[in-house]
Simulated assay, not measured.
Amino acid sequence: MKFSRLYLVIFFLLNNFLLVFAQDKSTTKINGMTMVASKTTITDANAKDLRDIGSNYIAVMPYAFMPRAEKAQLYFDTKRQWTGETLTGIESDVKTLQAVGLKVMIKPHIWIGSGAFTGSIAMTSEIDWIQFEENYKAYILTFASIAEKNKVSLFCLGTELNSFVSERPEFWCKLIEEVKSIYSGKLTYAENWDKYEDVIFWDSLDYIGIDAYFPISENKTPSVEKVNFAWHGLKATLKSFSKDYNSKILFTEYGYRSIDFAGKEPWDSSRKEVSGNETAQLNLLKGLHESIWDEDWFAGGFLWKWFPNYNSDSYRHKNRFTIQGKISESYFKSF
């Protein structure tokens, strides 16, 4: 009887230790996934799929639209948008994700009708700049309010807006203060891999957000070893930058397409036909994880991207960024 009780005590303590260890491991880093907005709100099953892939954070993306990069108009929460991009849809998806134990980052994006890059947004007059700033502030504060209402863990102030950020620094400093006045969670901003050093307000945020599409390799199928070597130099630069601002770096986006030469220009999302290569995608992801994931200056990252209603019979995304239905999906589950 004494042995039996002792055994039960040991079993109980060991079980709790393992549980705590597992929880610590899963929460040490932001192991995030970027969820593509869908035509309808997501289901409980969609949320569980994201949890079961191994994610602990999900990025949801409310889109706003501009007719042209030099025009002040900015539209959001319209009837023409998919439900998953609207106020109602974002709030519903946040609640569904949180209900299965996932944390959320709300990450606003702008889509320009001409297909122009958001980093090139620039008005042609002071009047237009002021109008655009008012429109952008309304957009951001609206979703910051949703983030606060739903106790969202992380809010992103914008995505890849280099010219806007560089030309209008006073606006951004004021915007950060206004967001902080209504939102009590963590804050970041997502800047492109080649422009993050231009941002002046990192010390006002909780994380340095980088969309990490750094060129890694010009090989058709780079080995994990070569990917590790490529990250060696980048890692030193990022560590130094993190130290300068006394703030951890968060990869607000990272990922690779399942194509030949996927590490050469990882930012390329063009629809041109390219030969599929799942091994290249896998090796690039493994190399990134092995190189920097355990660094103390690194907060984690959000993999780009996941479709809640993915159709495994469709070839639409076979050579795109998603890991769904590919060998990288099994790897991510065990990562």
Rank of each mutant, 00 (worst) to 15 (best):
K220Y: 09
A144P: 00
K149Q: 05
M61I: 10
K326S: 01
I42T: 01
Y139K: 01
T279R: 11
H289D: 11
S4E: 13
N15Y: 15
T88Q: 11
H317Q: 05
K195P: 04
K239Q: 12
G84S: 06
T40P: 08
Y315S: 13
D77I: 05
V152M: 02
E177A: 08
D194Y: 11
N277W: 05
L6G: 15
T78K: 02
I110D: 03
T40A: 10
T279K: 12
T43G: 12
S120I: 14
A22K: 10
T86I: 07
N319L: 00
H232P: 12
E218F: 13
D260E: 04
M66D: 09
I58A: 06
D313H: 09
M123V: 04
W129H: 09
K264I: 14
V199P: 02
L6F: 07
V60W: 03
T279C: 05
D294M: 13
D294F: 12
F302M: 09
V224C: 06
G209D: 02
A22Y: 15
A47W: 10
K326L: 07
A138F: 12
E225D: 10
S258A: 15
N228W: 05
N31E: 12
L19G: 10
G84Q: 04
K235F: 10
D260A: 03
T40C: 07
S4L: 06
T279S: 07
W193S: 02
V100W: 06
I208P: 04
N283I: 05
Y254E: 03
F3I: 14
H317E: 04
K286G: 08
R168N: 13
K286M: 10
W267E: 14
E126H: 08
P215N: 08
S145C: 02
E218I: 03
S314N: 11
M123D: 09
H109G: 04
M66H: 06
W193K: 05
F132C: 06
E265P: 01
V227Q: 14
A122T: 10
K39H: 06
K137G: 01
Q73H: 11
T96S: 11
K305I: 03
I121W: 07
Q73Y: 11
E191Q: 15
I42A: 11
Q23Y: 15
D93L: 11
E329I: 04
Y315N: 13
N46D: 13
E70G: 00
R168P: 04
S275V: 06
L303T: 05
E329P: 04
P308Y: 07
V60I: 13
A116W: 15
E265S: 08
I30E: 00
K333G: 03
E218Y: 14
K305V: 08
K25Q: 15
K195W: 00
S217E: 07
N219E: 08
Y315V: 07
Y331E: 06
K180W: 03
G185S: 15
K2M: 13
F117M: 09
S223Q: 10
F332T: 01
K151P: 12
E85T: 04
K305L: 08
D294T: 15
K180M: 09
F214D: 02
S314A: 15
K95F: 02
D198S: 02
Y196M: 05
N46I: 15
I208N: 10
W202C: 11
R271H: 13
L50Q: 01
G287H: 03
H232C: 14
